[in-house]
Design a protein around this nucleic acid. Structure first.
Length: 256
DNA sequence: AATTATTTCAACCGCTATAGA
DNA sequence: ATCTATAGCGGTTGAAATAAT
């Protein structure tokens, strides 16, 4: 499913090669600016597309398919409370992206919820015809909430024990130039090395492809940041052909 | 086995919020 | 105050997979 290019940017399904490039780059440098990152990572996609691919598919410990009953229950309940606030719901389901939760809701749970709603309505009709005692509905809601809170906690604990680095890498920064690199993640073995020569050689040890957290990772961004700290605007950096060609040609760490 | 209909879900699009110039 | 760039969100689309005929 490879769609046409738009403004030189590829669209459609991601290839393994693209995935590997993006994953490898972010594992090393984090994401500091999606629009620029695509250039450095060597991926011919829009920043928006890269961000989406990372968030929904590539980031560490992301889960796919096979929603558990507990997860479904949480989605159903939170959707009942929050509506289509997918990202808010996703914060309570570790390892699940908002997109996947949205899909889960639209393809499975919406119908289920509608059915249950009808059943509840019928029950309510019967109940109101009987007595109007001390609101039993409230007790049901409280019990459900307690159960769901417990389920959320269990999922959170499980997730944090399995994935110590999941959300510390790539946390959004208030500054687009403030790029995050997790020391946890740099300890992970890489399943792919970025092919473009300008970033790999100085950073990855020969024997095991694992980066020492004590090493200074001198990235192309260092050059850009330095450039900016010397009074150049972001646009000027982007427009500077010399800078780009220097980055492309660089085989060794930059020295100032 | 071939065709058509339906479902799934990855990816896109348009929009809003926010930060910085 | 206004403009621009970026990140993030939610709705929607459409290719691929699967089911039904």
């Amino acid at each position: 499913m490879v769609k046409s290019k738009k403004n030189g940017m590829k669209k459609g399904a991601w290839s393994d090669d693209e995935d590997n490039k993006l994953r490898a780059y972010i594992n090393i440098y984090g994401h500091w600016n999606w629009a620029l990152l695509t250039k450095f990572a060597g991926v011919s996609r829009s920043g928006k597309s890269c961000r989406l691919r990372w968030v929904n598919y590539l980031r560490p410990n992301i889960k796919h398919g096979n929603f558990t009953e507990a997860e479904d229950n949480i989605i159903m309940d939170l959707h009942n409370k929050l509506g289509n606030k997918w990202s808010a719901i996703a914060t309570n389901l570790p390892g699940r992206s908002d997109n996947e939760i949205k899909n889960r809701w639209n393809t499975h749970l919406k119908r289920q919820a509608q059915k249950e709603h009808i059943v509840l309505e019928n029950q309510d009709d019967n109940e109101t015809n009987k007595v109007n005692e001390a609101n039993p509905q409230e007790n049901i809601v409280e019990t459900t909430n307690l159960k769901l809170l417990q389920e959320v906690e269990i999922l959170r604990e499980r997730s944090s024990s399995e994935s110590p680095s999941i959300d510390r890498l790539s946390s959004h920064s208030s500054s687009s130039w403030d790029y995050a690199v997790s020391s946890d993640v740099t300890q992970q073995p890489l399943d792919y090395e970025p092919t473009t020569n300008f970033w790999t050689d100085p950073f990855i040890s020969d024997d095991d492809n694992i980066i020492s957290s004590s090493d200074h990772l001198f990235t192309p961004m260092d050059l850009v940041v330095d450039y900016i700290s010397n009074g150049y605007s972001q646009d000027m950096v982007m427009a500077n052909e010399f800078l780009w060609s220097a980055l492309d040609l660089c085989n060794e760490p930059f020295l100032f």
